[in-house]
């Protein structure tokens, strides 16, 4: 089975207290914040590795990111992926989710045939959950989001194959059968990602990372970057969290009853 796993470098959540918003540009100031593999993408990679362990095949990492993200891809290779493709070009900067999905889809077409694309359901920085579904649309394949379990695959005699997956819903799941090639966006319940091992780190040093630019992908620059992005940020702000205070001045017994009632009204008990 040939599996592509989409990976995005995101600012390490452990350092988010050091992150700020640029007051006028309305972008995140990420300077000095180390990047990590988007947490859900690690679950996607773990699932891909488990499928490879069971059915054989190849796991490829696909990422669109600046060149300094090579070390993030190396980490994904150290977890066990076979090779990686990094899409990197100044022209890609400022791409919204639509332009990003377009770029990724063009790369997938050049990487060649595949059976599965696995993505994290959303990234911890943007949190849109758009890229998975948009990528499947661009590629003209089925896409399923919120996947919390891959039950298995059925291989037919005519060479086609189907996957049976569980899509997480509020309070339950939907069982879906879908034909390959297929894109699945996974949630964290799907598995527990493995630790990178030291021997994995050594092996990763010998694995290939291919870097592709806009011209390698023969992409029209007007379709990507800021120019190709219809999404416009209206505003970006840090929500102000304030404690609400209320003073109850009654005799203790009455006060406790009142406080209890207030807590109950808010549905906290």
């Amino acid at each position: 089975m040939r599996i592509i796993v989409c990976v995005k470098p995101v600012p390490d959540p452990r350092h988010w207290n050091r992150m700020s918003l640029h007051p006028t540009l309305k972008v995140l100031v990420r300077e000095g914040i180390p990047n990590v593999v988007n947490p859900l993408d690690r679950h996607a990679l773990e699932e891909a590795l488990r499928i490879r362990e069971r059915y054989g095949g190849e796991v490829m990492i696909l990422s669109m990111a600046p060149l300094f993200s090579l070390s993030i891809l190396r980490e994904a290779l150290a977890m066990g992926a076979d090779r990686a493709v990094l899409l990197s070009d100044k022209a890609f900067a400022g791409s919204d989710t639509l332009a990003t999905s377009h770029i990724l889809s063009e790369a997938v077409k050049r990487i060649g045939p595949f059976d599965l694309i696995l993505c994290g359901n959303q990234t911890i920085d943007g949190w849109t959950g758009h890229v998975g579904p948009q990528l499947s649309e661009f590629l003209g394949i089925e896409g399923i989001s919120f996947v919390k379990m891959i039950e298995g695959f059925h291989f037919e005699e005519d060479g086609t194959a189907k996957a049976i997956v569980r899509k997480k819903t509020e309070g339950g799941y939907v069982r879906i059968e879908a034909r390959l090639p297929l894109l699945l966006s996974v949630v964290k319940e799907i598995n527990t990602p493995r630790y990178v091992t030291f021997s994995g780190i050594l092996e990763a040093e010998r694995k290939e990372i291919q870097v592709m630019s806009a011209s390698d992908l023969r992409i029209d620059p007007s379709q990507v970057g800021l120019a190709g992005s219809p999404t416009k940020m209206a505003d970006l702000f840090m929500p102000e969290v304030k404690r609400r205070r209320e003073v109850v001045q009654e005799k203790p017994e009455m006060a406790s009853k009142l406080i209890f009632e207030k807590i109950r009204q808010r549905g906290l008990i």
Partner: peptide
């Protein structure tokens, strides 16, 4: 090196 940085990251996460 990249290797040593990755080792550090891995062990930090495990710890």
């Amino acid at each position: 090196s990249e290797r040593e940085e990755l080792l550090r990251k891995t062990v930090r996460e495990f710890a």
